[in-house]
């Protein structure tokens, strides 16, 4: 693997962890627009403890994630009183406050940014991502996951049937913030340099888009969404070079390759949401994919076994 490919896989792994941070509240019918704030808290807490307390970073990332989860737990009680757009705006305000607060802390470099000493590579980050996927996939199969689905479909009805909606929503919100903080900590130890302005509202929006594009009703949704968001802009990256193979002179406006890839990407989001608003991976799509894989395996097995027969 070239270092470019390894780098892409690391970014994908981090994006998947963060995407689950947004997925869990969405699965409980809540939209958290403050994901970037929880990421920032996880990143800075982990980096500070690792830099100063001498703990190994594999421990500090969970301390960072724990801080993010703790903040979520503290604010969940008042903030989850609000609903729908109000909740989205309240979480958005929370994210802005966290980033703005870090911007004023000289201890972690304020606006100049903060250097992180310990570095993580793919070998450390990928297992953490796989563990995250496993935890969420397991939770999804338990009564907890079933209850979250019930809440997202009809909160009042779920409550009438004895689902403890409020407690579960707080749990989903807190757990989501934990994963967001974990992803933020991984981000800090991969890039080794963090700035408060990196954790802005646009980042939160992109993470929400990961989940909604991938699909909110399947554990595979965030993975698919994160993969699309990680790889698709890369495919468009060398657009101008490809165009210049066809045309002798590349016009000036075509040269803005990075802007073009985001414009095309945005147009794809819009068209996609028109055609398939439920996201790419639904339960049906997951089953279909599983059937297809099983069919392929059977075909392979059949071909092999028939070949073995006389």
């Amino acid at each position: 693997m070239t270092s470019y490919q390894t780098g892409l896989l690391v970014i994908l792994s981090i994006n998947i962890v963060i995407a689950y941070g947004a997925y869990l509240p969405i699965a409980a019918g809540q939209m958290n627009l403050g994901i970037a704030g929880f990421m920032a808290l996880g990143a800075y807490a982990s980096a500070y403890v690792a830099n100063n307390a001498g703990l190994p970073p594999i421990v500090t990332i969970f301390i960072g994630a724990g801080f993010a989860g703790l903040l979520a737990l503290i604010v969940a009680v008042p903030i989850l009183r609000t609903r729908g757009i109000y909740l989205a705006l309240a979480t958005f305000a929370l994210g802005q406050i966290v980033a703005a607060a870090i911007l004023n802390v000289e201890l972690v470099g304020a606006a100049e940014g903060y250097s992180v000493l310990d570095h993580f590579g793919l070998a450390t980050i990928a297992p953490i991502t796989i563990a995250t996927i496993a935890v969420v996939a397991y939770l999804n199969r338990t009564r907890f996951g079933l209850n979250l689905t019930a809440i997202s479909q009809d909160e009042l009805l779920a409550n009438l049937f004895g689902v403890r909606t409020r407690r579960l929503q707080i749990a989903a919100f807190t757990l989501g913030a934990f994963f967001a903080g974990l992803g933020g900590a991984l981000h800090a130890h991969y890039y080794n340099y963090i700035r408060p302005q990196d954790f802005n509202i646009l980042l939160s929006i992109y993470i929400i888009l990961f989940v909604l594009l991938g699909g909110t009703r399947s554990v595979l949704g965030p993975i698919v969404g994160a993969a699309i968001f990680t790889f698709l802009p890369e495919i468009f990256r060398d657009l101008d070079k490809k165009f210049s193979a066809f045309f002798d002179q590349v016009p000036d406006w075509l040269g803005q390759a990075s802007a073009w890839r985001f414009a095309i990407f945005a147009a794809l989001i819009i068209v996609f949401m028109m055609l398939r608003p439920q996201g790419i991976m639904t339960r049906g799509a997951t089953r279909a994919a599983a059937r297809w894989v099983a069919w392929c395996v059977r075909r392979l097995g059949f071909a092999r076994s028939s070949g073995a027969r006389p």
């Binding site: 729908g84 989205a88 929400i208 909604l212 803005q256 802007a259 073009w260 985001f262 949401m273």
Partner: peptide
């Protein structure tokens, strides 16, 4: 209810980058 929100975010990214180009 959050689906139109997603597309409107798509339009924000689209308009900004078209002007940038």
């Amino acid at each position: 209810h959050f689906i139109p929100l997603v597309s409107s975010m798509g339009f924000l990214i689209l308009y900004e980058n078209l002007v940038l180009i």
